[in-house]
Amino acid sequence: MAADKVDPIHQFQITKILPIQVGHWDVSFTNSSLFMAVVVILATGFLVMASSSRAMVPSRWQVVAEMAYSFVADTLRDAAGKAGMQFFPLVFSLFMFVLVANLIGLVPYFFTVTSHIIVTFSLAILVIGIVIGFGIWKHGFHFFNLFVPKGVPAALIPLVTLIEIISFLSRPISLSVRLFANMLAGHITLKVFAGFVVTLSAAGAVGTVGSILPLAMAVALTALEFLVAFLQAYVFTVLTCMYLNDAIHPGH
């Protein structure tokens, strides 16, 4: 009975809050959907509140919002140039969504949306879909030059092109797996150490003293997880920018 209380996987379970069935599709409102909605509301609310005053001398909230804005804008401009700024709304929304989802997941008993691979994979597919769509719309057939490297012997071009295409298609997978794996691993580690505290302190006075060690570890891990949350949101954004750069300038 103690086993299911400290089960480190239990936190990722999806439960239906409001079962909905459309045709033969299950579109129930789950705890995952709930927290996605919470993330969107929080991020939007924060930005609207922070930018509502638009003071010359910014308040603290406004400073944070402006920092997030200029951070993403700089990243995008560095990676994709001036032309990349047309994608700023997309990139900024992605960054805020991933960041807020990562941070909210750190609150105890809260659900981490980004620890499910289907969520991160959908985000990555969105990015790659936009890259392909925009690239073809803007450059037409020229976009496929992306897959044909220059300076390769003619005999090798089919092979190398095939490899390049697979490499391109593997981007959404590596993009999503990275975010998902980091969040999942972090939360499992955290839960395992927290579980040690529970198990040890149930074992009497000696155990309670001994549980200080895993507790300290859990605290340290929480700090690390905050860093990972920021880092992975940043990584996701940077890679999005780089892929968008391919769509905007597909090798002339």
Binding site: F71, D74, T75, D78, A79, A80, G81, L146, F147, V148, P149, K150, G151, E164, F230, L231, Y234, V235, V238, L239, C241, M242, N245, D246, H249, G251, H252
Partner: peptide
């Protein structure tokens, strides 16, 4: 990156080429 993307990345301030996310980057 494939072929001419090397030149392209070099033009864009050079920081954004292949190395994507080693460490928190220059901004963090």
């Amino acid at each position: 990156g494939a072929g001419t993307r090397l030149r392209e990345a070099g033009k864009n301030s050079g920081s954004a080429s292949g190395r994507s996310d080693e460490g928190p980057g220059p901004t963090a």
